[in-house]
Structures are given as structure tokens and as C-alpha cells.
Design a binder for these strands. Structure first.
Length: 766
DNA sequence: GGACGTTCTGTTTTT
DNA sequence: CAGAACGTCC
């Protein structure tokens, strides 16, 4: 059987699979079957008697890990389930849960996402009285992240003149204090942020030789995918774990390193042979994915970069179509051109929707694309956009779960202490924080012993706090015995959240309710799928994984099979491939990004990003740019990206289309930039602003095709109304592209008017 | 503590 | 432009 599957590989691939002992570096060009090699390598190890538990395989997404496990299971049968496989963050979070007590953390520690971290930082800045533009949460978190990735603690920072001088220069001389407080607060909350998961893994292995030895012995084989995107902290974990057996195999492509902004260090892969002297190097250079035109164009482009390993990617595939470059007048026209092209290609090539992907540099670019696709009734999905778990209602209910599991979780507490409203306001909360800090305890401890702390708050508040503590404790009592689903429903009901959500009958409110229902269904699945012989599928177990899931891990089964065009950022497209790839927004300052053109390294990373985008295409790549782009209400004129000129002539085809500028484009340019008043006049039916009542807004495609309610939009009608020129009514339908949308408004007297929403804001009330 | 309105601010990519 | 943050009034 083994022989069979090895025969599916080419010579290079097979050699890489068979080299299981000692340090191995596999340089895998785009589309060269990298995942296949990794999969087969693990299967090969298992076939030769390796224990699944002895294999540690680090992937870039949890989804990739799951798919790989499935394929391995398919190749060698059982055992695949027990391999240690996942992202760095999820794998080492799992390890830390077992060992965290050695660091003073409980096993049920919370993982803060960046929102939690930022809220905490904001609170700290406020407490220290440093409210200043130099102390913005996002900037602070970025700085802290950099330091943690370099394995520097607040103490190390305070001993380092250079780092401190950098912050002094940036007018942040109190950064050290903030960093220290932040870490202290995380610890008191029994919480770790994303970077802590890697940082503390390092500390654990560094300071506890017994633990290090245990895992060194356990992980006889270590494999790392996308090695070009690992950072220093990850490098150090690997170095410690692999030191004993030295069976470390890294796979990557230096040409696809695109995460320097979050600390990834391309030098890790460039210097792997120096770090591990007897490394065997394999190069996978045959591209099985793309046409000659695409491979040649990509090669030519990437050769402009100085930092890279020597390799020659080639393909025996057909010449293929040339890369097509188009120009549009505006972002919305670009959207229409792309949508139209997909529409046409679908017919001419008998292609299905899922063979198409539209890529872009920034998330904000998706909107005009979406509008255009909707108008042509092309089904689409945004891949990896705002995560399900980022939504407010989900975060709220999850905050209950978090607090029930870990009472010290400050950010969870902050979210829900007064949601639903129970009379514990910001003032009371702030006082409790102060008290907790003064006494060096967690806020929960203050709440639990509220009477002993003599807080200067009203007795009413004390009462409410006691009630809340009792409520959370009553939930926690069921943790060991209830299944996740049962307890979640219990909490949702008894916390008053369900009631609160149920009362909101606006479309958004109903949508929120549905989301919560979906979460509960997910919990039901989790509870029912569990092994009846194994441990009870508690809420604890469910929550362990959640913090580190990516949006792609949710609802995957249904979405996976659906036939939709995928929209995503180039970063999200890593590791994926499509027959037809569209890349929009090829404009200077957008791609390459304005913030990434000051140094050679930054520009090279942008170029690698472009390389990644093009090499996602199997059959054809389409590039487009527009000469103006809408941004913050203004239409900015744009220059074509410098990258377009770096493509070889013979691989491209310029199809500059001179479509006449459509109505909304000219409309847009003819209006003043910041209008002060509405330019529509409508009969006033009922004007008092406090009597606003609008029922629903739904968007319909122009053609009169079925109404799509999935894009409900919150708008505010009647704000800044001057001279009683504007009346209230029920908005029935909305169409067109925001901000030039039209709405059909029904007035109290039954009259219908079409309203141009150019300057109007409409809010759904009630 | 909530409703409502004004002012500020963002402007890259994400585990 | 759109959403967050803040301020004012009840």
C-alpha cells in the first residue's frame, strides 16, 4: 500500500517524503504539491511504525490541519486523529493548558483576543491618566506584540535603553509602565493574549528542564508548514523542542513570505541551514497548478526581489491564456467589469461560480465588488471576513461562558456586568478596578467580598453585585456535570440575554437572535458528537478551542459545498487555488500599500504578496486598476501600480476598456465633497424628530429579481433636517449603490416617493 | 442609566 | 463616509 501512494509523487517529492531523519528543509515553489508532500511524509512515518503522538505538525490554519488529518486517515487509516497538529497558537495553547500551573496560571486560563487586549489597554491608559494620542490602544498593542515576539518581558524592556529611547522619541515615555501593568492585569485575570501563548511556551520550556525533556522526547518528528512566516518566538520554540532528536522538517517558500508585519522573519527560512548545520535541502520546483504564462510572469516578477533562495519554478502545463489587465474609471466600474467578466467566463468556459476568486489588498475593497456581483445575481461569499465570533451578540454570550469558567476574566466581566442592565454602572465598575489594583487582587475577588472592601458606592449597588456573583456561581456549579449545550442554554435563559434579544424585533435584532441560536446549535453539535465513552463534552472543553478558531472553521460543511464566487484578501488566499483569479485595485499607494514603500524590505514583501495573488490562478489571472477610487466620501485619483510594469510583455494582454463613465460616476464627481443639506424636497407628513418610525429597508437588485434581505443596512432618516423639507415614512425598498442609493418611501398618506439617499441618513427605529 | 445628538477618527494585511 | 466615542439632557 505504501508503495502505491509513493508512486504518485515525482522524484523530488518522494525524496523529501523519505528523508525522515535529521533536519530537512523543503523549498516548495507555488503549486508544487507542498501539502501533498507533508501529508505523505506523515503517512509514511506512521506506516513505518511512528507513534501518532510523536508527531508534531504545525500548520498555518486549523482548517489546513483538519484537511491534512483527513487525507492522512485516508492514506493509512487510524491514528491520524492523535497527531499533534494545528496552528502554533492552538497547539501550544493545548500544551500550556496541561502545564500552565508551573507558571502560576490555572489550566482554564482565558485567551484574550485583540479586542479584549485593546479594551484592557484603554482602561489602563485611562487609569494612569495618560489619555493622549500617543497612547492609542492599537499602537500599544502592536508594540507589546513586537516585544513579546522578541521574548522580552516588561523587566527586559525596562533594562533596555534602546527600546526605551524609541518610545521616548515617540512621546510614549510611560510605555514601560503600561506594558508592566498590562501583563500584571492579564495574569490577575488568568488570561493570556495571542502572543503570550507563544511567549509562555518559550518560558515554560526554558525554565522547566523536566517539561522540556518530556516534550523533546515526546515529539520525535516535528514538521512546520509555511515556515517562511514564522517569527522569532516560534523559531525559539522549535529550536528548544527539536534540540534532542533534530528531526525537524520545515516546508516553505521564501517567495511567499507575507507576514512580516506581524513579526514573521523571513531570515528563519533563509538561515535554516546555518541554524541546523546538517540540513538536507529539497527543492520542489515543478509547478502543477498554473499555465506557463502565469508561472513565467510570476517568476519574472519575483526576480526583482533581492532577498531570496535560488530556485527555478517551471511547469509542463499549457501556455494558457495571457494575463489580462483592465482599467476602469472608478472602483464601482471596476466591480462591474469584474462581475461582468465572471458572468461571461462562466458561460464561455462552462465554469461554475466556485472556480472564481476575487482578491484584493484591503478588506475595504470588497464593497463595490459585492454590489456589482449582487446586481448580476452572482452568488458570492466573503472568505475570512469578520468572524462569527466577533459579532457583538456572540461576544456577549461567550463572555458569560468565559466568566463562568474563569471568574477572574476581567474583559468578560466588563462586557456583561451590566448586560442585561442590572444597575451596576461604569462608576461602580471603575471603583472596583481601583480597589482591585490597590489590594492587588482580581476584580472578582473584590466583588466576592464586596462588603469587606468598603467601596464608596451605594448599598443598592452592593446588593446588585452580590446578586451577580451568586448568579455566576450558580452557573459555575453545573460546569462539571452539564454538557456544553445544556449549560449554554441554561445560561442564555437565566442571564436574561435571551429575553433581551427576543424583545428586539428589528431586522437586526432578529438577525442577532438567529446568530445566538446558531451558536447554541453549534454547541449542540459539539455535545452530541462527543464520544459517549469519553469525558463529558463540557462547556469548558468547548471554550478551549474557540478563541483560536478562524472564521473558516465555522459552518464549514455547508459553505464548503456551496457554489459561490469567493472574495478575500490576498493574505487569506494563501494556500488556496482557483481556476480564475481576479485581482482588483492595482493602484499605486493601494497595492503596493502606501505604508509599505519606504524601505526595500517592505516593498519586497508587497511584491511577494503580488506573487502570491497571481500564483493562485490555475487557468487565468485578471488584473485591474481604476483611475479613481472612493475613499471617505471623496473620489481620489489613482495611478496604476508599479507592479504592472514589472510583468513581462509576452505574458500579458492589455485590454483597456473605454466603457463610458456610468451615471453614478459622473454624478459623484459633480457634487460638492461635503454637502451641508439635503437636496431633495419632500412633503412633510410628520416631522417631530422624536416620532420617527421606519419599519424596514430591504435591498433589491435593479432587475426586480428576488429581494435579498441579507444586506440590510442601518441608516438614519431625518437627522440634520433643515427647513422642514423632509418627512418621515416607511422605507419599502432601497436599490443601487450606496451612497447613491434610491429608496422608495411610503408616507403616512399612502403616497410613495422615490428618495435619493445621496445625502440622507436613515435609521431603522422601533 | 438611557436616548439622542455631536464630534472625532480611521486609511493594510491577522493568529 | 461610517462607526466609535463623547457630551448633554431627562
Amino acid at each position: 500500500m505504501e508503495k502505491d501512494f509513493l508512486e504518485e509523487l515525482n522524484t523530488e517529492q518522494r525524496a523529501a517524503v523519505m528523508a525522515t531523519e535529521g533536519p530537512v528543509m523543503i523549498i516548495a515553489g507555488a503549486g508544487s504539491g507542498k501539502t501533498r508532500v507533508l501529508t505523505y511524509r506523515i503517512a509514511h512515518l506512521l506506516n513505518n511504525g511512528a507513534d501518532p503522538y510523536s508527531i508534531l505538525s504545525l500548520t498555518f490554519t486549523n482548517k489546513a490541519a483538519r484537511e491534512m488529518k483527513e487525507r492522512i486517515a485516508h492514506l493509512v487509516g487510524t491514528g491520524a486523529r492523535d497527531i499533534w497538529m494545528g496552528t502554533f497558537h492552538s497547539t501550544f495553547a493545548r500544551l500550556l493548558r496541561r502545564e500552565a500551573h508551573k507558571l502560576g496560571y490555572p489550566p482554564n486560563f482565558t485567551i484574550y483576543d485583540s479586542d479584549d487586549s485593546k479594551t484592557l489597554l484603554k482602561s489602563i491608559v485611562k487609569e494612569l491618566g495618560l489619555n493622549d494620542a500617543a497612547y492609542k490602544a492599537s499602537g500599544l498593542l502592536g508594540r507589546i506584540s513586537t516585544l513579546k515576539t522578541m521574548l522580552l518581558s516588561p523587566k527586559d524592556y525596562l533594562a533596555d535603553i534602546q527600546y526605551m529611547n524609541e518610545d521616548r522619541a515617540a512621546r510614549r515615555e510611560h510605555f514601560g509602565q503600561i506594558f508592566e501593568t498590562y501583563n500584571k492585569r492579564l495574569f490577575k485575570a488568568s488570561a493570556m493574549d495571542f502572543d503570550d501563548l507563544l511567549y509562555y511556551t518559550n518560558i515554560l520550556l526554558r525554565d522547566h528542564p523536566d517539561v522540556l525533556l518530556k516534550y523533546q522526547n515526546m515529539f520525535k518528528y516535528i514538521m512546520v508548514d509555511e515556515y517562511q512566516d514564522t517569527n522569532f518566538s516560534q523559531y525559539m520554540i522549535l529550536r528548544q523542542l527539536a534540540a534532542r532528536h533534530l528531526n525537524i522538517c520545515v516546508v516553505g517558500d521564501d517567495a511567499q513570505s507575507i507576514y512580516a508585519f506581524r513579526g514573521a522573519n523571513i531570515q528563519n527560512i533563509l538561515n535554516f541551514q546555518k541554524h541546523y548545520p546538517d540540513t538536507q535541502v529539497f527543492k520542489l520546483e515543478q509547478n502543477y497548478r498554473s499555465t506557463k504564462n502565469i508561472v513565467n510572469a510570476a517568476n519574472h516578477l519575483i526576480s526583482k526581489n533581492r532577498d531570496q533562495l535560488q530556485k527555478t519554478v517551471w511547469t509542463s502545463n499549457d501556455e494558457g491564456e495571457k494575463i489580462r489587465i483592465t482599467r476602469a474609471f472608478s472602483d464601482s466600474e471596476e466591480g462591474r467589469q469584474i462581475a461582468q467578466s465572471i458572468f461571461d467566463t462562466r458561460i464561455s468556459q462552462q465554469a461554475s461560480n466556485k472556480e472564481f476568486a476575487i482578491l484584493y489588498r484591503t478588506n475595504a475593497q470588497s464593497r463595490p465588488l459585492e454590489e456589482a456581483l449582487r446586481k448580476l445575481n452572482i452568488p458570492y461569499r466573503i472568505y475570512g471576513g469578520v468572524s462569527f465570533y466577533q459579532r457583538k451578540e456572540i461576544k456577549d454570550i461567550m463572555a458569560y461562558f468565559r466568566l463562568v469558567i474563569n471568574h477572574n476574566d476581567e474583559e468578560a466581566l466588563r462586557r456583561i456586568i451590566n448586560y442585561p442592565v442590572r444597575g451596576i454602572g461604569d462608576t461602580t465598575f471603575d471603583k472596583m478596578i481601583v480597589s482591585a489594583n490597590d489590594n492587588d487582587v482580581s476584580i472578582w475577588t473584590v466583588m466576592e467580598n464586596i462588603k469587606d472592601f468598603n467601596l464608596p458606592v451605594q448599598s443598592r449597588a452592593i446588593e446588585k453585585i452580590t446578586e451577580f456573583v451568586t448568579l455566576i456561581k450558580s452557573f459555575a456549579a453545573f460546569l462539571p456535570t452539564y454538557t456544553a449545550h445544556k449549560l449554554a442554554e441554561y445560561i442564555a435563559t437565566n442571564s436574561g440575554i435571551m429575553k433581551e434579544l427576543y424583545q428586539d424585533r428589528t431586522p437586526e435584532g432578529i438577525n442577532r437572535m438567529e446568530n445566538v441560536q446558531e451558536l447554541l446549535n453549534g454547541l449542540k453539535d459539539f455535545s452530541e458528537k462527543a464520544d459517549p465513552e469519553g469525558p463529558i463534552p463540557t462547556l469548558n472543553l468547548f471554550m478551549e478551542d474557540i478563541a483560536l478558531l478562524t472564521s473558516e472553521d465555522i459552518n464549514e460543511e455547508e459553505e464548503h459545498n456551496s457554489d459561490k464566487v469567493l472574495l478575500m484578501t490576498i493574505h487569506a488566499a494563501k494556500g488556496l487555488e482557483f481556476n480564475y483569479v481576479y485581482l482588483g485595485g492595482l493602484e499605486e499607494n493601494l497595492f503596493p500599500s502606501q505604508m509599505a514603500i519606504t524601505s526595500r524590505e517592505e516593498l519586497e514583501e508587497e511584491r511577494r504578496l503580488f506573487y502570491v495573488a497571481i500564483t493562485r490562478a490555475k487557468k487565468q489571472a485578471y488584473l485591474s486598476y481604476s483611475i479613481s477610487r472612493y475613499k471617505y466620501g471623496n473620489s481620489l485619483s489613482c495611478e496604476p501600480s508599479r507592479f504592472l510594469e514589472e510583468l513581462p510583455e509576452e505574458c500579458i494582454e492589455n485590454t483597456i476598456t473605454y466603457t463610458s463613465s456610468s451615471s453614478d460616476d459622473s454624478y459623484r464627481s459633480s457634487f460638492p465633497k461635503t454637502p451641508k443639506a439635503f437636496n431633495v424636497s419632500l412633503p412633510v407628513m410628520q416631522s417631530p424628530l422624536n416620532k420617527k418610525k421606519l419599519v424596514s429597508i430591504s435591498k433589491a437588485p435593479l432587475s426586480g429579481a428576488p429581494v435579498d434581505n441579507s444586506h440590510l443596512k442601518t441608516l438614519t432618516v431625518g437627522m440634520k433636517v433643515e427647513h422642514d423639507r423632509f418627512g418621515m415614512g416607511e422605507v419599502i425598498t432601497m436599490e443601487g449603490q450606496y451612497p447613491n442609493s434610491k429608496a422608495v418611501v411610503m408616507f403616512a398618506n399612502g403616497e410613495k416617493k422615490q428618495l435619493l439617499l445621496r445625502f440622507a441618513k436613515i435609521k431603522i427605529l422601533e
